[in-house]
Design a protein around this nucleic acid. Sequence first.
DNA 1: CTGAAAGCGCTAACAC
DNA 2: GTGTTAGCGCTTTCAG
Lengths: 349, 349
Amino acid sequence: MAEHDIDRPAPKRRRSKGSSLTLRDVARLANVAPITASRALNTPEAVSEAILARVKDAVERTGYVPNLLAGGLASRRSRLVAAVVPTITGSVFLETVQALTDTLAAHGYQMMLGQAGYAGTRADALLEAIIARRPDGVILTGIMHSPLARRRLVASGIPVVETWDLTPNPVDMLVGFSHEQLGAAVAHFLHRRARRHVAAITAGDERAIRRHGAFAAAAASLGIAGPGALAQQVVPAPSTVESGRAGLRALLAQAPAIDAIFCSSDLVALGVLIEAQAQGIAVPGQLAIVGMGDLALSRDLHPALTTVRVDGTLIGATAARYIMQRAEGRAVAQPVCDVGFTIVERGTT
Amino acid sequence: MAEHDIDRPAPKRRRSKGSSLTLRDVARLANVAPITASRALNTPEAVSEAILARVKDAVERTGYVPNLLAGGLASRRSRLVAAVVPTITGSVFLETVQALTDTLAAHGYQMMLGQAGYAGTRADALLEAIIARRPDGVILTGIMHSPLARRRLVASGIPVVETWDLTPNPVDMLVGFSHEQLGAAVAHFLHRRARRHVAAITAGDERAIRRHGAFAAAAASLGIAGPGALAQQVVPAPSTVESGRAGLRALLAQAPAIDAIFCSSDLVALGVLIEAQAQGIAVPGQLAIVGMGDLALSRDLHPALTTVRVDGTLIGATAARYIMQRAEGRAVAQPVCDVGFTIVERGTT
DNA sequence: CTGAAAGCGCTAACAC
DNA sequence: GTGTTAGCGCTTTCAG
């Protein structure tokens, strides 16, 4: 019972109870070293035809599926990307999340989804849980700007893309558009359409508020904000159809002369449309409605909804590309992308 | 330059370039062995007060975030759960995904999301990508039933929950409801409401078709399916408002006498409602509409939509609980859960 | 082009 | 309660 054997003792595989199929088994079957099997799977061009065939055959026969957790630990590349949204239901970010998932999946990455909530209380815990998985990138949509979260994220060194906004001092990369420009553009649009008493219904989230601040300012300078301040209703986030209905009722009580409403989401706009129809208010005759987000259903309403379209798919695909580029060690030349927006004019204006 | 040192050479940390903060660093700072630091973090009750405090302090001071990839490899528990949906946009499963994410997050698990597509071509590749991450569980919603996928899943030994259905031979666990019962219930409901010429608009996905098969059979046996076969339109999945509008037009051309339509989703039902309003057809006077899914907006329509509600949140939370129970080694006593459904009667009937 | 050795950062198993 | 040791399954590094 020597305390120190001179020759290193043969490694005994102690914990192999589930004894899952490993690269070793495949390598043994193919009569190569494990590392060669690894190369055959990851960089097939670096391996001879014959060996490639043998390894592939062994994989086929055993039904081997590599363990990417182990691979990630060794290579420091998890091929996991985290996306954070405020909430997933009824969110304008769905298109972005879809594009993200698809683009990433097409390149062998997998998406983790996290919900930060609109209150922001869960954000820090969520971010810690995310960083603990060592993702190759984090994509932030909507809020998520606790200072602690920012610091942690920077400290972790993980590539970050912030989306759906153009903040002056991003954590890292940026794919979005200017909410201020958007708000002002809508005011000018309504002015050109000869609306003279505009109003707004705004969800109580930070970006919507900035959007509508710019809208109010532009409307005032165009002289279409009504006699006093702009008539405005703030409804809680996330926005709903009911907020729109209630919002219109409140607005009408407050300023009966209004002839146009800018809503912070298409759902709210749908609520306004429904309430207007229920009250016998002609749209667009007496009241113009502009939404935001261009949901799939907006073009199918009657009348079809005028809205501001943001290309969420482009945002998602671009963000995914940025992350993958970074993960593969290539620098991103222009890590800020303004995708802009379009006012899609339809029947409600 | 001895070729074999008798004493094992001191491990030289060769690859430490990024030199991330590890448990070792924390342990060193707290003056304990790494395993003790590990215990302080994972099973604080198994460690003395004094040590717990020292470790916590060290974590605090360094900003240490554990590497769960490494932890998962060692413990064979990734704390990752995969959810698969056909597509994320416009999906009735959003509520389920939300509940899943939240329930899992509350217990330290993270959700990976995958989109299989309605065509089913991406399902196999997606499933391989998922299994490669060794999740503690997989939650399937919607289709995903390629035989290869089933086999792989079973072979992997990963706990599986199939949701939104009650299949006769599940892969593993099951949380759903009977689409057949649902379809029949709607037929009886319309019969009781004195509708005598019912019709249906069905998205071309397998469950909707089964639902509507049962609807048609029950309607026929009640004598409300019209003179010949039930008037029915099949529209492509995923369903949209436009499908509903087009569907109603087609149905009217085909069978002008219909007085009720069962739609395979609320979005389709909204389309029918809009088209009816556009054509001056009174709802519910001339035409009753029943949706499926009870979207948030359905109750806010005018008239509010009668629909079949399925508790997607309950499905998600239950599925999450099943997976976590299994992951923690406890068997699930009743791995089949019928969450049922409710017909929510509102203004369109 | 192929392989041996040495870990990636953590925890299970067994001592004490 | 705390520590020692030996891996989890893979890939990097370095050597042929």
